[in-house]
Amino acid sequence: MVERDIKKVFLNDLARLQFDVFLIDLIDERFNLYLEPEGKICTLSSELLSVGFPKDSNRGSKICSGSEEFWHLWEAGWSTLLSQLRHFGVLDRLRVNQVFWSSRTENGGNFEPDYSDRQVDLANQSLERMYRHISADIPSRQFLRFNYGLMTGSITHKWGISPFHYIDAYYHAAIQQLCGWPLLRNRTAISEKAMTSRTNYPVDRVILRHEGDQLVATAVFEASQIGQISFYVFRNGKQIHTQGYSQGSIVRVGIKPEPGVYRALVFFLTQDGRRVTVYSNPVFLYPVISTLAG
């Protein structure tokens, strides 16, 4: 990755690449740039710094992410990429992953001391500016957009706690959106048909029911299974409860009398590393009833 960034060979490769989806994620625009006296630029990524790159060298200068100088360079880069995608007739295959930094983790904590609330706000302002710029060239249907509740920081992410390392439900939603695109939907259907012919999914269904002031979600298995289960509960698409991986197949969630459609999402992690996701039945609670005076 570092070598490709320094050599700037991607646009040359684009002519011979074959792909169904060209997915752009702007989260890494958080990194500063390094400008050499000769005018060459590279990204001061974690990978580059990990190999001993002298980021504080007096020989070159740093261009800070979020600065106007950074913006003008990004704008020029986007224009170049846009032109190339149009030239090769693949602009319609572009998808933009419209995500933002989270301000809180799934247990309500912040990201200090690594990231302050001010840093989160500034990063999101820069991202919003980029998305607005791209939307002038790309139709809305080519954006992946998410409920803000899904963009919550995970406390168990394999790469650590960070404003852009989200809970599992976000990644599931992203895959659903990508697979919903017509070209991928057809290919996925063929793949799933082949897979289900030789694989029985361990989770038969997830049952969600209302008991007093609680919601009870139960994962029902076709047979005895060994693995880990996590639960996510949503109201009107917004996450209201998370239970991390455990061996328990039932979760009880205390709820307030708020009207809405409630649903549970289960992730089952098998012994061989497969992750199965299953949604529960929807439950509609506390409807608002209006009456007209006679």
Rank of each mutant, 00 (worst) to 15 (best):
L44M: 04
A223F: 02
L33N: 06
Q142I: 07
R252E: 13
A264W: 00
S290V: 14
I190K: 15
H241Q: 12
L35I: 01
V2E: 10
Y201F: 14
I161M: 04
V288Q: 13
A123N: 03
G60Q: 03
N124Y: 02
D204Y: 14
S57R: 04
C179F: 11
F111V: 01
V96Y: 00
R145W: 08
N97F: 01
Q18G: 09
P163A: 05
V253Y: 10
D92F: 03
W101F: 00
E106N: 05
S197L: 12
H157C: 05
F53G: 05
S246L: 05
G254P: 07
L285Q: 08
R95P: 00
S45R: 08
L49T: 01
A194D: 12
S280Y: 01
P282L: 01
I167H: 02
R141T: 07
L26I: 12
I240C: 04
D20M: 02
K256G: 15
H165I: 08
R275Q: 15
T242K: 15
L11N: 07
I167T: 12
G77D: 02
D28Y: 08
S65H: 06
W78F: 11
R187F: 06
Q243R: 14
R30S: 05
G273W: 00
I41Y: 12
S50Q: 08
T43H: 00
L73C: 01
N124L: 04
F268V: 03
I207R: 14
I27C: 11
N12Q: 14
S224M: 08
L122W: 03
L35G: 04
G89N: 00
I134E: 10
S102C: 01
L94Q: 01
Q214L: 11
V203T: 03
S154R: 01
A217P: 03
G294H: 14
P182N: 03
A174S: 15
S83I: 04
L81E: 01
R104H: 05
G89M: 05
S224G: 07
A136H: 13
G77K: 10
L183S: 12
L11P: 13
I155M: 07
K256H: 15
K256L: 15
S224W: 10
G227C: 08
I175G: 07
R104E: 04
V9T: 15
Q228W: 13
F19K: 01
D204T: 15
G212F: 02
F284W: 12
L269Q: 12
M195K: 13
K8Q: 14
I138N: 12
L33P: 06
A123H: 02
S57T: 10
I226E: 14
G66Q: 02
L35S: 05
